[in-house]
Design a protein around this nucleic acid. Structure first.
Length: 334
DNA sequence: TTATTCGGAAATTAAAAACA
DNA sequence: GTTTTTAATTTCCGAATAAT
C-alpha cells in the first residue's frame, strides 16, 4: 500500500506558519532557502496547550482556601473561557509600554513613608474609638517589625529608594489593569496604609467613592472598625518579614460610608520590593451575608443592598474556582 | 506574473475515557 | 495496560488580493 499523503511538517517555521504555507522539518526549511532567508528560519510560535494552562491555575489555587481576588487574568464573565481571559490580559502590555516609560520618568524622588507613620500615630492619638489597650497593641505591632525594616533600609541610598518608588508605581500600573478586569472588591495600599488603588467593586460593599479615597489621602485602617484596624496591624507585623506566608486570611469589619459596619472575610497579600522590604498590600473583602432564613422566618430580602452583596458573593465563588491571586502577584515584575 | 494574505479543512497531538 | 474518544491546536490548501 502506497500512502500518497504527504507527511506534514512536524513543526512549521515561523515564516511558513505566518504565511500558512507548506514547511518541512529541516532548518532552514526549503521555502526559506528558496527565498534566501535561510538564516532567519526558526521554529514557529506554539501555544501552550490549554490543559497545561488549566493545570497551572489549579495547582496554584489549591493551597489557599480563601483566595477571592484578582486575577487575572481574567474576566469575571462566566461565559468566557480561560483562554479568552489570558488573551485579554496579554493584550494589555501593548498599550502600556509608553505609559510605563512615563512612570519611570515621572518618579524622581523617594516616597516619604515616615509621614504615613506620623499619620497613624496622630490617628490613634486623637481617636477615642480606640481603647488604650488597642492603641498599645498597634504600637507593639509597629515595634515588632521596625528593627527588620531598619536593618534593610540601612543599606539603601536615596537612588535605591527612588528606584523602589519607580518599581512601586510600575507594579501599581499592572495591578490596576488586573483589577479592572475582575469583579472583586480590591484595594491596594502602601506598607504605611495609604490607599493607592481601589477597585470599582469596593464601592458596592462600602459606599465609598473610589476617587474620594484616592484624591484625599486615605489610609486603609481609617475605613476599618477599630478592632479590625488593630488586628490588621498585628497581622501585617507578623507577616511583613515572614517570607513563608505573604498571604493572610482573616476577617475584618469595614466602615460603610454611612457609618454602618460591614462584616467581611478579608484576605491580603504583602508584596515586597526588590530590596525585600514590604512595599504594598493587596487586599480583598468578601461581605458576610445575612444568615439563610428558615422557613419559619418571615423575612424577605428585597433591598438593593442585599442583591448587590449576593451578586458579589456569586462572582467570588465563581472566581475562586480558577484564580489564585498570589500566583499572579508573586511573579509580577518589580 | 508573482507574492502575500488568510479562511478554514484536515491532520496532529495528548489527555481523558472506555475497555479488556 | 491498551485502545478509543475527545477536544484543542497546528499545518497548509487554495482562493482572494496586492505588488511588481
Amino acid at each position: 500500500m502506497v500512502n500518497n499523503k504527504k507527511k506534514k511538517a512536524t513543526r512549521a517555521c515561523f515564516s511558513c506558519q505566518k504565511a500558512h504555507l507548506t514547511c518541512d522539518d529541516d532548518r532552514p526549511c526549503n521555502r526559506c532557502v528558496k527565498r534566501g532567508l535561510a538564516d532567519q528560519c526558526k521554529d514557529g510560535h506554539r501555544k501552550k496547550p490549554k490543559y497545561i494552562m488549566d493545570d497551572q491555575f489549579q495547582s496554584n489555587s489549591a493551597n489557599s482556601e480563601y483566595n477571592v481576588l484578582n486575577e487575572l487574568l481574567g474576566s469575571m464573565e462566566p461565559a468566557n473561557t480561560r483562554r479568552d481571559q489570558l488573551a485579554s490580559i496579554n493584550l494589555q502590555p501593548i498599550n502600556q509600554s509608553i505609559e510605563n516609560l512615563d512612570v519611570y520618568n515621572q518618579v524622581n524622588q523617594r516616597y516619604p513613608y515616615e509621614l504615613g507613620y506620623k499619620h497613624l500615630l496622630n490617628y490613634l492619638k486623637f481617636n477615642n474609638q480606640f481603647s488604650q489597650l488597642e492603641k498599645l497593641n498597634v504600637f507593639k505591632a509597629l515595634a515588632e517589625f521596625r528593627p527588620s525594616l531598619l536593618s534593610l533600609q540601612l543599606n539603601l541610598n536615596e537612588q535605591d529608594e527612588i528606584f523602589a518608588e519607580k518599581s512601586f508605581k510600575r507594579s501599581i500600573l499592572d495591578i490596576d489593569n488586573l483589577i479592572k478586569s475582575i469583579s472583586a472588591p480590591t484595594v491596594v495600599w502602601r506598607r504605611t496604609g495609604e490607599i493607592s488603588l481601589v477597585g470599582d467593586e469596593f464601592h458596592y460593599i462600602t459606599g465609598y467613592d473610589k476617587n474620594l479615597l484616592l484624591n484625599k489621602p486615605t489610609y486603609i485602617y481609617e475605613i476599618m472598625e477599630p478592632t479590625s484596624a488593630v488586628e490588621y496591624w498585628q497581622q501585617f507585623s507578623k507577616h511583613a518579614f515572614d517570607s513563608t506566608s505573604p498571604t493572610v486570611n482573616s476577617h475584618c469589619i469595614l466602615k460603610h460610608a454611612n457609618g454602618s459596619p460591614v462584616p467581611c472575610t478579608f484576605s491580603f497579600t504583602i508584596r515586597k520590593d526588590i530590596f525585600d522590604i514590604p512595599s504594598y498590600v493587596i487586599g480583598t473583602w468578601l461581605p458576610i451575608l445575612p444568615h439563610e432564613p428558615d422557613e419559619s422566618d418571615d423575612i424577605k430580602f428585597e433591598s438593593d443592598e442585599y442583591e448587590i452583596d449576593q451578586d458579589i458573593e456569586d462572582k467570588f465563588i465563581d472566581q475562586q474556582s480558577f484564580i489564585e491571586p498570589n500566583a499572579i502577584y508573586q511573579n509580577d515584575p518589580v
